[in-house]
Computed example of a mutant assay.
Amino acid sequence: MYFLLSSILVSITYVHCLPVGKDCNVIESVVPEECRSIKGENQTDVWIKKEQCREVFEDGYIQWSERMLADPNLTANLDVVYHVEGQATRTRRSAERCPIFTESYIKNATGIQQRSISPWRYLVDFDNNRHPKQLVVAECLCNGCINLETGFETIDGNAHSKPIMWLVNVIKDNVSTKIPITTGCSCVASINQFAS
């Protein structure tokens, strides 16, 4: 309830502080640090864009991603994908590949992403023209799925690892937009398996 009331108050203040010439600097304290550098055509445009950016950071996935990024123990070994002028480059920090499900691997697997028969890893997606600039996203480790009887990846055309996609609201090039991100991976049956 408090969250809803504070959002309404902030929205009303954004709308009403500008036309009557009131000081809007008080509102700056509720805008996430990353959103404070947003530019616009005029003061009203700036505040509208900052409000949109604030709303982006209230998204549950964005908040989860921010918590992950704040923990250096979790992010120290994550690969980073940098997006610059439409080109993506990757910095490898991990040699993680499609695992073999041995008894010791399963005992040491700490996350659901490691125990899934369609395992994935997390990486940091960095784009300087986006708010948030960094997002934690998933990447499938296998093309096929792990066979629980053998512990090895099976690539027989009957099942494949597929990314689970989610649309998340971001500010990209100062415009509020939705982008697809991968949140995990799933083992799915091939349509060809049933065609005959």
Rank of each mutant, 00 (worst) to 15 (best):
L74Y: 09
C145I: 08
N25D: 15
H16T: 15
C17W: 14
D59C: 03
Q52E: 14
I12W: 14
E153Q: 09
S196L: 14
S190M: 02
A95S: 15
A88Y: 12
V84C: 02
N158M: 10
L148E: 15
S37R: 10
D156E: 04
K39R: 08
A189E: 15
E103I: 11
S94P: 04
E28C: 02
A189H: 13
V26L: 08
A76M: 10
K162Y: 14
L5W: 14
V124G: 00
V56A: 00
R115N: 08
S161I: 04
M1T: 15
P163F: 05
G157H: 02
T89W: 06
R92P: 12
D173R: 12
G86N: 05
H16G: 11
A159I: 08
E149F: 09
Y2S: 13
I106E: 10
Y2Q: 13
I181P: 01
Q134P: 05
K172N: 11
A76K: 09
G60S: 12
G111K: 09
G86E: 12
G86C: 09
V84P: 00
I117R: 07
S37A: 10
S116H: 04
D23G: 01
D79W: 05
Y61S: 01
W64K: 07
I117T: 12
V124P: 00
T89N: 03
P32E: 10
A95N: 15
S186D: 15
E149H: 10
P99E: 06
S104W: 06
E58N: 06
S116P: 11
I48Y: 04
S65C: 06
M165A: 09
R130M: 02
I117P: 03
S7I: 13
N42R: 03
C185W: 06
E41N: 03
R92L: 11
E139H: 08
A195F: 15
S190R: 07
G86I: 10
P72G: 00
I155T: 05
P119W: 08
E149T: 14
L69P: 00
I164V: 11
V15T: 14
G144K: 05
I171W: 00
R67F: 04
C24E: 10
Y61F: 09
G86M: 07
Y2K: 09
S118Y: 05
V188W: 14
I38L: 09
N143D: 15
C17T: 12
L18F: 13
N158T: 09
K49A: 00
C187P: 02
N128A: 08
T110D: 14
L9W: 13
Q63S: 03
